[in-house]
Structure formats: C-alpha cells, structure tokens
Design a protein around this nucleic acid. Sequence first.
DNA 1: ATAGGCCTGACG
DNA 2: CGTCAGGCCTAT
Length: 273
Amino acid sequence: MPELPEVEIIRGQLARELRGARISSCEVLLPRLVKYPTALGFRRGVRGREVREVRRRGKYLLFALDGDRELVIHLGMTGSLLLLPRGGERPRHTHILFHLEDGRDLIYVDPRTFGETALVRRGDYRSLPCLSRMGPEPLADDFTPSRLAAALRGKCRVKAALMDQARLAGLGNIYADEALHRAGIHPLRRVDTLRGRDVARLHAAVREVLDEALESGGSSVSDYVDLQGERGNFQERHLVYRRAGEPCRACGEIIRRETVSGRGTYFCPCCQK
DNA sequence: ATAGGCCTGACG
DNA sequence: CGTCAGGCCTAT
C-alpha cells in the first residue's frame, strides 16, 4: 500500500487536478468497498458535488465536497487512483468510478480490495475507527521529539508502536523499517528501553525518510503508482526493506528478516541495537 | 498486545 | 505447491 509519502503525493496531484471539478455520477462495481453509508447512499451523495479541497490524514485521503459531506478514501495495500479520459478501457480491478463533468473519470483500482471508502458528514469519522483515533502527523511543524516520546509510551516493541496509527499517523511497514535502520534501533526493542537520545534519533530519522521518499516520488515496491500511473523511485534507496540476504549499505553485514507483530521486518543486526 | 481474517497476484 | 505482499478490523 501507499504509506504517508505516497498518499501525500497523490493528494497533491488530486488537489491540483480536481480544483473545481464536479462529480456528475458514480459507479460502484464492488459495493463492499463502501463502508459508509451504503453503496447506494454513497453514489447518490457524491452525485453533483464539487470537490473543494483534498486533504490527507495519515494514509486517508479526505475530499471536502460542497455541502457538508466529505469523501474518504483509503487505498489499503494495493489501491490506486487514476485520472483517465472517459470511455477508455477500464483497468483490471477497477471497482469504483467517479465520472467528472469535464469528461474525465477518477477511477479506484484495487487488486486485493483491502481499501475502503466512505461518505461522511464533514469531520464525523465514527464509521472509520482508525481515522477517528489517528495519532499525530509526523511531518507537522509541532511534531517534536517529546511528541514522539509520548507516542512511544507502554511496553510494546518499537516496530509495532511506529506502525500503530493511533500512536503515529501514516507509517507502514516500509518506512517503519527504514526509519529504525537510520536511527540505529533494533525493531524488537521495547519502547520503555529507549533513552532520550534514541527518541531524538528516531524522530529525525522518521522525518528524514518521509521527506526523502516524497522527493523521490514514493516507493513502488509492487503496485504503487501515482495519479498518472507513474512509479516512484525511493525503493532503489531502501536500506533494509525487502533486502534480506543482501549486505547492509552502511556496514556490509547481511540484512535479516524476522516477523514482528505479524509483519515481515527487515533490519541490520550490526547497525541496529 | 498479539493472532487471524479479508483478497488477489507474483514468484520460486 | 508454498511463501510473501505497502493495512486495517475483530476477537482473544
């Protein structure tokens, strides 16, 4: 799935491309991807609405529509949004189409169908528990090392904490592993063993890796493409993610893979303690 | 705090 | 055939 940098790239493109665009109609080919209200209510609710603003919270895209409705899209693991001229061939795994008045279609494509959409009253996220409990945005100006320290309370493993959206918004498996390597912290470390300097390094590492990924157009490990169908380049700069058996770019030690809280976790046993 | 479920596809 | 996949939810 797109994680924070990839969703942010798509958000920026949507904001530019959809300025003032109006949805003339909507087709839902796979109704279970609509979490709220019903597929019918969703289609009726977006019809005729103008897109006023596109924001992001964690990995969620939030489209402010005229009226007081907000369209919420989460791309799951393999979702993508594509903006195409109307009437062309539909990509495989197309599940939702927003037909725009200007003749373009905004298309939601998702092979694994882990994504979700909803149409809510603005700011009312009760039907989306993860969004309603979302932790702080790591790229916000007010995200300080002490905010990160507060997010790392408890006794869980630091990798699990970084991926917990209620603690910190937007990190997934790739950027959690990459940030931990940059900070020199082992993914299995328990958060209550981290010292002030560890938290400071992790804070810097999280922001740096997200910034660099944004500059590189995001990570395209398998499915990720932007609104124009273009892949990112940051996967070429990954230091650990999916590099098991290869040498660490910092020290030459062999990168290991272990399962941590159910997710494949990549780290350098020499650089990360 | 951790496992299993949801889905399809790529790869060995 | 089995393993691995960028995430979230629900149940223990």
